[in-house]
Nucleic acid binder design. Structure first.
Lengths: 255, 255
DNA sequence: CGAGGGTTTGAAGTGCATCAAATAGTGTGG
DNA sequence: CCACACTATTTGATGCACTTCAAACCCTCG
């Protein structure tokens, strides 16, 4: 039904293979902590550095998988699409996040769509290189396990939110997650992407999102001006949202 | 709100430690495929074999984790509970399923509740034993990765179902998943546990589940008598349910 | 047989979706 | 820099799916 203007392949391909400046960036990722530089150098030497414009598709559900992706900057949405053409957003990722690696365990095929939603800058590392390495490198396998496990907890929270929180609560929770720091002072923040997309990420329609924001406004919890939101009191907002959740603010590393 | 009669600890403890008859059972689990018998013997020798009655709690959210669990028979629900006392079911597991192992990556604490919903028979293996082994045994780490990855795809489907399917569709999909075989003949099956619990697993109230079943009945897709359901035509049922899903029947290994 | 939980049914309420239209915001070419 | 086109967002009116509350029914088990 909602057929977006997908321009696959029309991405800006700045293929600077193996720029050694990538190495320090990889080293900082949890996935690669305690991994020998020599291994990372192998990854870097076979990697591709690429840009994608908004609405470009990185891969489709069912595609054969060749790479996994490390986000340098920008935003990606991972989603599924039904026969009816409806889409369900699984996750929206940004700088430092890794995705696509799960194809290793799905017969080398991707199990969802990945699409850039803001100008995106990724490092693409060939999956066979990863596969070879985890087969012998136990530390890397353990790091990957830790990453998967974290992702699993995030998904559990997603499921919990969808079943138990109402629209304003899901919105409030989303805003709180945008506040990294846990100081209790009023907090001004910029919504990272389209409101329509945030709505979809939270499992609601754009109209419902809009009304949800107004309702938080009316309760005097926040102020909204365009894409800017001011949280008057983190304390107050969390007490109105987190009662319908198994975690209390500030959530653990999950959020 | 819904405070269930939890009788923690009052379980029937048939502690027959290290019965070597367990070994062949472990060997058949995907998690332990291609793992040396000597390793499994170590697991068996430190394991506990235990029964839990309906409504017994295995562990609570936040508990320090000592074991992971392998189900021999019976059913367990994994769930979260909000401050309000509402619960969200994450998963319902049965024979052959493994759970609790993710605590290894959550600071050795469980991140949800686990409760027996039908008389339950589990093998409990100490987490430190697993931790020690995956630190050096790459094959085991890879098996665990594969298991986590499968679980991840299941969760993704759960999320998708919750966002896109309506109540009768979720029910139909659940029934189809109970049919392992994909022969197209009418299929009679027994609901594995309380309708109330199925409802909750599917993210709806018992009343909605009941009405959903009637609606499938009225569409002449199924017949219901007590806990027995007859699917008139798998073809017809799947065509009415799977349109709101990214998978078509029969779903891949996910279901 | 009777108690109690699970299940069904009915009536009414609520929250979100849908449809439609107005408004704000953004990027374009002139 | 402005006018236009197009999209994102908001607002209002209405509908529907699911929930809630209440009561009846049914089934199991002591």
């Amino acid at each position: 039904m909602k057929q977006s203007l997908i321009k696959t392949g029309s991405s800006t391909e700045s293929l600077d293979t193996a720029s050694s400046s990538l190495l320090p960036k990889l080293k900082d990722l949890p996935l690669f902590s305690n991994i020998d530089s020599s291994v990372l150098e192998t990854f870097v030497s076979t990697s591709i550095h690429q840009n994608f414009h908004k609405n470009n598709m990185l891969y489709a559900h069912g595609d054969e998988a060749h790479y996994f992706y490390i986000i340098q900057s920008g935003w990606v949405k991972l989603y599924k699409e039904t026969l009816d053409g409806e889409e369900a957003i699984l996750d929206i990722l940004t700088t430092g996040h890794v995705f696509g690696e799960d194809a290793l365990f799905s017969d080398n095929h991707h199990t969802c769509y990945a699409e850039a939603i803001e100008t995106l800058d990724v490092i693409m590392i060939p999956l066979p290189a990863l596969a070879r390495e985890i087969n012998t490198n136990n530390q890397l396998a353990l790091n990957l396990l830790a990453a998967m496990s974290k992702h699993r907890r995030q998904q559990e929270q997603h499921i919990e939110h969808m079943s138990l929180q109402n629209a304003p609560q899901r919105i409030g929770c989303f805003l709180l997650r945008l506040c990294k720091a846990n100081d209790p002072s009023p907090k001004e923040l910029l919504l990272p992407y389209d409101k329509t997309l945030i709505a979809s990420r939270l499992g609601m329609k754009a109209e419902t999102f809009s009304r949800g924001l107004s309702s938080l406004k009316k309760s005097n919890l926040i102020t909204v001006k365009g894409g800017t939101v001011i949280i008057h009191s983190i304390e107050a907002l969390s007490s109105s949202c987190c009662s319908a959740c198994s975690h209390i603010y500030p959530c653990p590393d999950i959020c």
